[in-house]
Design a protein around this nucleic acid. Sequence first.
DNA 1: GTAACTTTGTGAAATGTTTCACAAAAATGC
DNA 2: GCATTTTTGTGAAACATTTCACAAAGTTAC
Lengths: 207, 207
Amino acid sequence: MPKVAESTVRRLSLYLRFLEEFEGQGIATVSSGALASRGGTTSAQVRKDLSFFGSFGKRGLGYPVPELADRLREILGLKRRYRVGMIGAGKIGSALVQYRGFRQRGFDIIAIFDSDNSKIGRQWNGLTVLDVNTLERELSKHPIDMAVLVTPAEAAQPVADRLVGLGVKAILNFAPVQLAVPDDVVVKTVNLALELETLSYALASRN
Amino acid sequence: MPKVAESTVRRLSLYLRFLEEFEGQGIATVSSGALASRGGTTSAQVRKDLSFFGSFGKRGLGYPVPELADRLREILGLKRRYRVGMIGAGKIGSALVQYRGFRQRGFDIIAIFDSDNSKIGRQWNGLTVLDVNTLERELSKHPIDMAVLVTPAEAAQPVADRLVGLGVKAILNFAPVQLAVPDDVVVKTVNLALELETLSYALASRN
DNA sequence: GTAACTTTGTGAAATGTTTCACAAAAATGC
DNA sequence: GCATTTTTGTGAAACATTTCACAAAGTTAC
């Protein structure tokens, strides 16, 4: 398994999306240049990204759309579905549960937890919000592959520790904190305020 | 104005958050090492990041917490408030409007637009959802500094074009598309499904 | 006041990522 | 079938970012 930069992985996901579009339009082959212009990068970058994993194209012709899409799904681990648990039934959690992009891509939210009594027992998109105190019991019965953390900042680390204890190996974290986890657990933190701050910096620095 | 990597800017935002925490605890000075361990990086990285903008510390002692926080706010353009318009009154938009982190950091959502008649006129967190057809008229009356795009994929580019025409120079884009904008407009795209896919890759590649 | 310790600021080295440039392979045109 | 065109795959070069390592400056202890 080659060691590949995160930036490369993100681009592969984008390429896959474009390939699926092309597939829907009945396009059979695509050149690195076409993929590049669709994705705001360069043809050399596309070829280099793919070359980490093998050689999928035909010189003079390009890449076969369905085959390359399939290989990318395999590389990205998207040829299966993932069971996802969400911890935190707040506003962002609510939006994410209803977000179709997740299910479309193979991520099924199968349980939601919260600590707030006024939320526990509510129906959310067909799921009953469970008491976070029952996390261990519920996830032992119905294990998950990934967790989405949408708790307040102070609750995030303790919950992450419990998830790690339950064997969860992947966490998507929306709480604005840096989570400490063992090396074999992968965490991706999305910090929405921070994204606005990079815009603010960009505006401030170009005057 | 020095040319600085985006990764550096993101870390500066994190440092600012930690400094504000320290400030709340009445801590007067902090070393690069303390900031680093709080932020999951190294002391050399912290010092290098800061050195792009000047020299703020005292050897043997560290950095004065309130002064450094203030300088970071200045560098990041956070010593003012920003007027933010949101286009798209869907689930994610709803969550973002109510998200306190934005206002806390100086970003005030002052208008929401949608094209759906069943949403137009509704009250959202004290704001009336406006018809996106009136975008030009409303934003001429009440200009914005930044826009948050939470439309469906196919609406994003046309709306972005109109925003650019109105002089908007910064866009935070949640639609899963690559926006084309002039060089003097800065776009930050957040693609939630893509974040899960990087997790999926991480799981798939370490077996 | 002096010695020992701490910590910054920063060139230089190491490492990582993107771009270049071109040979090799295949397709196309005539 | 041969010349021309297209396009991949990939080392090498260019560029970018992080880490190292250490002198300089300041603090602390006595």
